[in-house]
Amino acid sequence: MLDLYGQKFSSRLLIGTARYPSLPVMQEAVKASGAEIVTVSVRRENAGGKDGDTFWNIIRELNVKVLPNTAGCYSVEDAVSTAELARELFNTKWIKLEVLGDKATLQPDVVGTLEAAKILLADGFEVFPYCTEDLTVAKRLADAGCKVVMPWGSQIGSGKGIIHDEALKRIRAELPGISLVIDAGLGVPSHAAKALEMGYDAVLLNTAVAGSGNPVRMAKAFAQAIKAGRAAFESGMMKPREIAQASTPVVGTPFAKPANAS
């Protein structure tokens, strides 16, 4: 079971709710994904006050756990204030912490992320920090009290998959007690399977499903890949070899010459 701050989940997929062709498609895709957790945001209300209600009613019908984010925040102050609004709005201690450092790459400001994480943890939040593949940052976040750490696979919305394998494997090896989630950059189900095979506890994705040709089918495809990847990890995978090793037994091969034949 996936353990996130003491709560257990059978699905290892956290799915975003943005960028779908429509709200009904989003709702169907979330159902098809089997995800028990969805990410949401808080945004200024400017349109008469009904848009938020419409969206929120659809989320409530899904009967899933909500993980609000601080997406779009470029300072510690903004991220902390947004987290406080999210806690009030969604009545949850969970917060996906994003403190961004660069508008082109949406790369996390890891220094600001650590600072904000400390403030929020001290205030009783359960923080899900979005970070890079940097080992020291991941360790510092865990040391600060984060029970979940979420390094990127690649840039948000890029669909490039996992491009820092070695660094991410190192984080997995060094933080055995932390629930690790690959957040951002996944494009196709095989990327998600790879994350689970690497021993990551879960993946968080959005655009790969929402921006696909058929979000509902793609959601199901990701669910299957994630199950496959986790089963492979739990089964214990073979070690790669430098050279070939016949899988079919050699002994008794028809027409073979005896080993001592000249």
Binding site: V40, R43, G52, D53, W56, A71
Partner: peptide, 28 residues
């Protein structure tokens, strides 16, 4: 500073205050 729903009637607004009103929205 977040003002909880229970205090919306009593919390007073003063000249120069900055108010953020937010709702749930789609997010990744």
């Amino acid at each position: 500073h977040v003002v909880t729903r229970a205090r919306w009637n009593e919390a007073s607004l003063n000249d120069g205050d900055s108010v953020e009103i937010v709702t749930p929205r789609q997010g990744g």
